[in-house]
Design a protein around this nucleic acid. Structure first.
Lengths: 203, 203
DNA sequence: CTATTTGAACTGACCGGTCAGTTTTGATAG
DNA sequence: CTATCAAAACTGACCGGTCAGTTCAAATAG
């Protein structure tokens, strides 16, 4: 809406974005824990060490701020997935990727929580945004799955896309399960369970 | 708190529970769609064709009503899982069970949505309740997984309990994915993807 | 008679959004 | 280097409205 920052390539070359960053961090924590509706803009602003007006200056509304937060988080996750795949075999490649995803969830559990809470909400305030974002993640994982399908014998009854969706979802819940219900479970154990999905896809 | 209903086995003034049932149905829909915090007690009462006072007479508060709703829904799901397993082979048994679970989610998508939104919320108003309820579901599924482990060669690196947790979570997200993002996907396709987890567990 | 439901009124806290005013920033002129 | 200025960024008191929870007298039903 407002789009207050429009340096139009000349006036202001550098924008720190420090305020937005602080707001992202504060809101990710609070909203992840208690849900969007149970956190007030005042709280977020206070946690970010900023005034309420600043929130409305940077984002037009609470809702838009959360949409931006979702986008921001998925972008971070996406770049992790893209950068973490230096393996020779396609399966190992995928394993690397899912490990990175589990690490990301462990690092930002609140974001993972936010995502699962809103991902399937219909109708939902951020459903369109989330559909797009999900698409991007499924696409990244799907590419890795397809490489697996090329290198190995797989169950042709099942499409790579649906496997990618299942892997994304399974990694979410296994990652959260580990954080919430089984803090003792190691990263490797969690990863082994996630990889089970791929193993079942292989013939 | 109040617990005005005791229809169990003891003869009592016949209480239909019709009011509670209507409230369950109405609130399941509304809360599933918009989340507990975005639905007012007035709305729920109106949707159930009941007055607000009745809500407070039957349940002590909004929060308690939601706790009861969670319990009610899980009880329904549990009984479906228990009753739907007339197979000879353990794997088919499990498949039957997961099929029943997918059917349940298709029948009560709002409840599935509510459950995933709240399941991993920490701290959360209903976290204790949900931990208990999750335990019960994992236990039912876990028993079936253990039968599979007895009848087949399985990956001994992975515990049946963690497989059960993964299956529960995976079925949730695959069921919701199907409803929200892939309405075209058939029950059989969804089931095949869920079964992938078990196949990967087998050696 | 007793259990249950109704419907309406009331309260007190809370919250999203607004806006007039203040401070900061950085470019430019002297 | 310094003074000036306008835009950008930020502030926080305030407003209008909402909602959970409470209460209760009256109606209904088993």
């Amino acid at each position: 809406m407002s789009e207050p920052a429009r340096p139009a390539q000349t006036r202001r070359p550098v924008r720190t974005n420090a305020t937005r960053q602080k707001l992202f961090e504060a809101s990710m924590l609070l909203i992840g824990e208690r849900g969007p509706a149970n956190v007030t803009v005042d709280e977020i602003a206070a946690a970010a060490g900023v005034s309420k007006g600043t929130v409305y200056y940077n984002f037009g509304s609470k809702s838009e701020m959360i949409a931006a937060l979702l986008e921001h988080g998925v972008e971070m996750l996406e770049s992790r997935l893209a950068s973490a795949s230096p393996a020779a075999k396609a399966v190992d490649d995928l394993q690397e990727m899912l490990g990175a995803m589990l690490d990301f969830f462990a690092e930002y559990p609140s974001f993972a929580q936010l995502l699962v809470s809103e991902m399937w909400r219909t109708p939902g305030e951020w459903h369109e945004t989330l559909t797009l974002l999900r698409e991007r993640l499924v696409s990244v994982i799907g590419a890795a799955v397809e490489r697996v399908a090329q290198e190995n014998q797989v169950d042709t009854q099942i499409t790579p896309a649906s496997v990618a969706g299942a892997i994304l979802g399974a990694t979410f819940v296994i990652g959260l399960d580990r954080l919430v219900f089984h803090p003792d479970r190691s990263r490797e154990q969690a990863l082994a369970v996630v990889m089970t999905v791929i193993r079942g896809y292989l013939r």
